[in-house]
Each structure stands twice: as C-alpha cells, then as structure tokens.
Design a protein around this nucleic acid. Structure first.
Lengths: 355, 355
DNA sequence: ATGAAAGCGCTAACAT
DNA sequence: ATGTTAGCGCTTTCAT
C-alpha cells in the first residue's frame, strides 16, 4: 500500500491572498501517508518510529513548510512557556537592564517573554497584565504602579499564576517581591556627604507618591538624624524630574540664607537633570545620586552614586518566579538587594570654608 | 455505540498544588444554568441575551474568577493579536526607544508584544524568531543579525506572517525594511567637520561586518572625496567599541606625523567610549558622533551628533507591519529615515593653527 | 510501531 | 433568545 501523494495544492490558496493558512499535522500525515500521531511523534522526537516513516514525515514537513502550532500544543498541554513582564518604561536604563536579565533567564528556560511598559498609567497596567493572564502566561513579573491597588490580581494569583513584584511592593496582594534597599542606600549616600563635612544637604526626588522616592527620603532623614543635623523641608524637593521645575527649585534653594553645599538625588533622572542644571550655576556643589547611569564617569568630576543592581534584580525576580512555576508553594518572600556606593569625585567635594 | 467515557479525573488537583486549573466557560455555564454559547455571548458582549441570563452568567463569572482563555480563543479564531519583536539588545537606548514606539503602537491596536534580544547571536536570533512564528504571531519586526542569512524566514513569509526589518536589511528574504540614512547622515557629519576646517578626520566605527557601520564609513568617504581630501586608512578604526582597543587606536593615531584634529564616530557606543578616552588626552579634538545619546549635552562641550530617530523608526515599522496584517499585499517597501545634525559644541571646535 | 479517537477551551454555524 | 454541535491543531491514552 503506497501513498498516492500528489503533493501540490495542499491548501487551496484563497484568491490573491498571500500564502494564507499553514500546513497542519493532518496535512503532513496525509502527504506522508501516515497517521496523525506518527507525525506528532516525529515532531516531538519520540524514538519509537520506524526509520522509513520518520523519513517520509520529515520529507512531507519540509515540503509543506510545516511548523508546529505551539498555541494549539499549549492549549492541550496546559503550559504556555511564556511569562509576562510589566515594567514602568523600557527606555529607563534601570528597567532595560532588568528586562535584559529577565530575557536571558527566560531564554535559558525556553520561555518567551510578553513584555510591556505601564508608563505609570494604572489603567494601562491593568489591561496589560490581565491580557497577559488571559494568554495564560506561566507567571508574571510586575512593577506595580505606585499608589495603586493591585488587588485585582489576587484572583490570578489564586488561579495559580505566580507573580513577583519588582522594584516596589504591590498593595492589595500577597506576592513575592524583590527590591533594592533604597532607605539604606540613601542613608549611605547622605552619610558620605556628611562625612565630607556637609551639613546643608538638599534632596531631590521623584513625586512623593512614588514608593521608592519615599524610601530614599526616609534614608536621607535617617542619615541627617543620626548625625544630629536638623531636617529642613526647604531643602527637600519632590516632583517628576524635569529641568524646568528642578532648576527653579535649585535656584530657590541657592538663594536661601543658608544654602545647600551638597545635593542628594533620589533617582537616575533626577541626577541627570540636576547635573545639567548645576552646569548653569556658579556654586560648586557636591552631588551624590541614587542609581548609577551610563555616563556617570564621563563628566568631570565623575558622579558619585549609590548604585543599585538592576541586572541582579531581574535575575533574582526571574529565579523566584521560576521557583514558583516549578512548584514552590511556600510563603511569599521579600528579597532586598543591597546597594553600593561608588565614589567618583562629585560626592567628595567639600563645602567651602565658612567665612 | 456510545462512548463509555468515565471522565477519568479531568481536574484532579494534585496534592498541595496552588489553585491549579481555572474555571472554563463550561463551568460558568453549568453554574449559571445556561448553555455554553450564552456564556460566550455574554463574555463577548453580544447584545441579544436576556438580562436575566446575562446577570446569571456575570454572577457565575465573578464567583468562579473566570477569565477567558485567549489562547483557546485564538486557536479558534485564527489570529493571536500578538506580534514578535526581535532587537539586538534592549539595553541599547536606540533599541529601547524603538521598542517603546512599537509597544505604544501595539497597545493602541490591542496587540501584545513578544520581545527578545538577539545579542547579535545568529543562533539565538533564529531560535527566538522561529519560536515567535510557532506561536503564530500576527507579524514580526526584526533586526537581522549582521552578515547572517535570514533565508530561513522565507517559509514564514510565504506562510503569511508579515515581517518588517528594522535598522538594516535582511539578506535572503524579500521583506519590508525601515532604516536610517546612515550614509547620508555620516556624510553630513563629516562635511560639518570639514566645513570647520578639518582635513585630518579620524573615523571610529563598529566592526566592518556590521551593515550600519559600513554605511557610515561609506558616508565618511563620500564626504572626504567631495572635499578632495585623500582617504587615509590609518585614520579609520573599526571594531567592537571598547575603551581598551579604541583608546589604543586613538593614541596610535595621535602619534602619527600628521595626527587627526577631529573624530567622527559611527555609533552611540563609539562616541561614548571616545568621549571617555578623549578626557585622558591633551589634544583638543573636534568630535561628531552618529546617533544621539542621553547626556550629549551634559558634558562640556556638548557633543555634536547626527541624530537618528529610533522612535520614528519603531513607529514606522509598526505602521508598516500592521498595514500588512490588515491585508496590504503590495510589493515590499524600503523606508529610509532622514537624520538631523545637532550642533552642541564638540563638532565646532576648529583645528589648531598650522605652525 | 502505529493509528483512531477523545478532548484542551473556545467560537461560530446551525438548530430550535 | 438560547442551546447543540462541530471543529481550530495539537497531545495522549488506548487499541492493535
């Protein structure tokens, strides 16, 4: 009984349309003159298929340009081999490094990444994450939108989709979390400035509603307190980093009777913005920034920073997520990553001698 | 002959496992006491369902924490509402901006993004892209790995998956492509230097095998030629940007009898590396870089660049891709984006007076 | 070693 | 207005 394959036109091409619908296993089976399950076996490398049939199947596959439909497979098997990653913004180096680490980990695990940026928009975040869940991702790594309730995710968690939060905790759900020790890091940075003789230290951070900004202001206050330096609200400015407003705030502070001699910035963008504004100002202020950035050592002097490790954060989050995917059902964990002070010059400027 | 199926524990919750398997429409239908299709209608907002049943279904849905399985839906419907994006490296600002633009466009179109970085590894790129295809993405945006054949994608193209290449053309397939006018941009940058009196202009670019690097060297040569300046190979260095090797190459050039008075860098990373190396050198060289970067105006003097528009590139690629997804079946297109010279100081330094 | 058939969760005719 | 049924493309018993 030989197969009477006529090979051509396996798929009636609808008029004009580009190569529409693909060949399926059924097509391959028909062309190779074997059963559907034999094709499946060959495709999945099941060894117990005769060489002859294997060859026939392979030939048909090549002929038809068959490629297994993994969506169908996954529907049947139950796991999608994909995870969802929601960050704040891909363009932010902190998040792109984190993404890179997750990408690499996922690649090792043969898992694809659905990724998106919330742009801090709660509704966008919600739609995106729920869309991930509807695709039945095997797990989720999420940067929650600040001062927003993530309670709607509890149902997903309950349904068995593991979630790990990065960079900040989520409110409303009990999920694994990995973040940097922002408070401790800020303490370290400000203490460094104090050790160099500063007592008037300004603090520029993101909006007060931002969790990480809060943490860092707390660390700033801790450092002042433990050095016995009074906290002066006039020296603290919190807002979405922007040359306009940060520049104005800086000039205001500099016109105080007792102006700051040093600045601590609470994040990446703030540091960069201030760096630019500082160029237009004659005072020579010391500067320590939270979070490292690419050209921190290309400017003169280099910018002293308290570095986070976004790569480690991504890796750690991915590890924890896959631990869950692999079945770990223990209590939720909070993983806090340390920070590193990197002295490059700007943080070692001493205050001008008092007149 | 009826099938005597004993429904062998279809939902056996494995001991201890977290909330396994989710409720399906069938479950919802059973609980609400309605037919399967009524549930489907409600879920899909079909208006012709009685209020009573709609309410019952909604109640059951809330009760069960039901969320439609979009993978199953897509298998049935035939489109996945997802596209694949393969770039070189998320951490590179050029690519992260491009990604951001694609993300935004996809979000508008209710499409999810499977994204990954090739890290210039052809095998990794291949695995990733084919995995995307196996997931039956609706389309693909790809940065091909340089000097690599993408012919294996022709089958996917034929199967009806539209592909648009970004930043460089793919070899081996006939796909839409969007890229920057690297040659013209480089010409513009080098001509700028020449206009400021330079005749000894060094050129630092990525490895010669990199398409974009080639283009930019060509533009560099064009500019020299049209100014009647001889091309001197000793002034051109192509390699993977790195402080070590670029620094050494720079020092070599500066010890020539007739050293360069200006530098043209062929990409982002080269510019940054050279900026850092230039800090350790006494000659005051002019510098024009191809591709803008974040702190280009934070250093003194600001770095003059020939800017690309990665956001526009991403948007343009997404537009073209969705045009195809929407059925455009015309001949493949090549879209070339212009560049902009941004003078910030470093490119306007004039050569020292000849002795 | 191989094939037939059931079914993953959903949509879309096709009944009623 | 609502339910029944037949698949989408695949894996996986279960026979043979």
């Amino acid at each position: 009984m030989t197969n009477n394959n006529k090979l051509p036109a396996p798929k009636r091409d609808v008029f004009g349309a580009r190569g529409r619908s693909r060949a399926t296993m059924k097509d391959v089976a028909a062309l190779a003159g074997v059963g559907l399950s034999t094709v499946s076996r060959v495709v999945n490398g099941d060894p117990r298929v005769s060489d002859a049939k294997t060859a026939a199947v392979l030939k048909a596959i090549g002929h038809l340009g068959f490629r297994r439909n993994d969506s169908a497979r996954q529907l049947r098997v139950g796991a999608t081999q994909s995870i969802g990653l929601l960050i704040e913004n891909v363009v932010d180096p902190f998040f792109s490094h984190l993404t890179q680490a997750v990408e690499n980990y996922a690649f090792e695990r043969d898992t694809l990444l659905l990724s998106a940026s919330s742009t801090r928009d709660p509704e966008r975040a919600r739609r995106l994450v729920l869309a991930f869940c509807a695709r039945r991702v095997d797990g989720l790594i999420v940067t929650p939108v600040d001062s927003t309730d993530s309670g709607y995710l509890q149902a997903e968690l309950d349904a068995g989709i593991p979630i790990v939060c990065v960079d900040r905790p989520a409110v409303g759900i009990d999920a694994d979390t990995v973040l940097s020790d922002g408070r401790g890091g800020a303490y370290k940075g400000v203490a460094h400035l104090i050790a160099h003789g500063h007592r008037r230290i300004a603090c520029f951070t993101d909006r007060g509603a931002v969790y990480t900004a809060q943490q860092r202001v707390d660390g700033y206050r801790d450092a002042l307190a433990s050095a016995g330096i009074p906290y002066d609200p006039a020296l603290v400015y919190s807002n979405t980093p922007d040359n306009e407003v940060f520049g104005a705030a800086l000039r205001d502070m500099l016109s105080l009777d007792d102006p700051p001699t040093a600045i601590f910035t609470g994040n990446n963008r703030s540091t960069i913005v201030l760096l630019q504004e500082l160029a237009h100002v004659e005072n020579r202020l010391a500067l320590v920034g939270f979070d490292d950035f690419e050209l921190s050592d290309a400017v003169v002097p280099g910018v002293t920073v308290v570095a986070q490790d976004p790569t480690e954060m991504g890796k750690s989050a991915a590890e924890q997520l896959f631990r869950r995917i692999d079945g770990d059902t223990g209590a939720s964990r909070m993983i806090v990553l340390g920070t590193t002070l990197i002295a490059r010059g700007s943080g070692e400027i001493v205050p001008p001698a008092q007149p």
